[in-house]
């Protein structure tokens, strides 16, 4: 129950941060969605860092992982904004921009998560976690 409350509170915070970014950097329908890309890559890096570091510490409470992982970072980052922006870019005939955005999201997101995981476990002096034993619950 405590984990659900933490996810709800984290969801408020993460959505608020993303909303602030959206409002601070308005974008035309046919422009490259730089802001969403930065939000997503930053969130992927931060989650990787935490999963490689703080999450591996046995004393880290489960509700805290849930509140920050699926809560704050899960709702700060978004996939629906990416897929919807790709559809709108396609409608605008901006196929090159759409393709570049798709590639930047996939390659950039995976690179950011990988870098975060490695830096996080390096700093925590722990081996890289390779099991997604509680994936979805704390990521």
């Amino acid at each position: 129950m405590r984990s659900y409350l933490a996810v709800a509170l984290g969801g408020l915070v993460g959505t608020g941060l993303r909303l602030a970014c959206d409002l601070a950097f308005p974008r035309a329908d046919d422009a490259f969605p730089v802001e969403t890309l930065i939000v997503n890559l930053g969130g992927a890096f931060a989650l990787g860092w935490l999963v490689g570091g703080l999450w591996t510490r046995p004393t880290t409470p489960r509700w805290l992982k849930a509140g920050i992982g699926p809560g704050v970072l899960g709702s700060f980052t978004t996939l629906s904004a990416v897929t919807a922006a790709l559809v709108v870019l396609g409608r605008e005939g901006e196929w090159l921009t759409a393709f570049a955005y798709l590639l930047a999201s996939i390659i950039g997101g995976l690179a950011a998560a990988a870098a975060g995981l490695r830096i996080g476990s390096l700093i925590a002096h722990r081996p890289m976690p390779t099991d997604v034993t509680d994936a979805g619950e704390t990521l």
């Binding site: 969801g11 993460g14 959505t15 993303r18 909303l19 959206d22 997503n40 969130g43 992927a44 931060a46 989650l47 990787g48 999963v51 992982g69 699926p70 970072l73 899960g74 709702s75 700060f76 980052t77 978004t78 996939l79 629906s80 904004a81 990416v82 919807a84 999201s105 997101g109 995976l110 950011a112 998560a113 990988a114 975060g116 995981l117 890289m128 976690p129 390779t130 099991d131 997604v132 994936a135 979805g136 990521l139």
Partner: peptide, 25 residues
């Protein structure tokens, strides 16, 4: 509905970290 609900429902960070953990495993 779009920025709030859909944005909160979907996630990019979990997807990318889970994918890298699959690669690392």
């Amino acid at each position: 509905l779009v920025t709030g609900f859909c944005g909160g429902l979907t996630t990019f960070s979990t997807w990318s970290v889970e994918t890298i953990e699959l690669v690392d495993g």
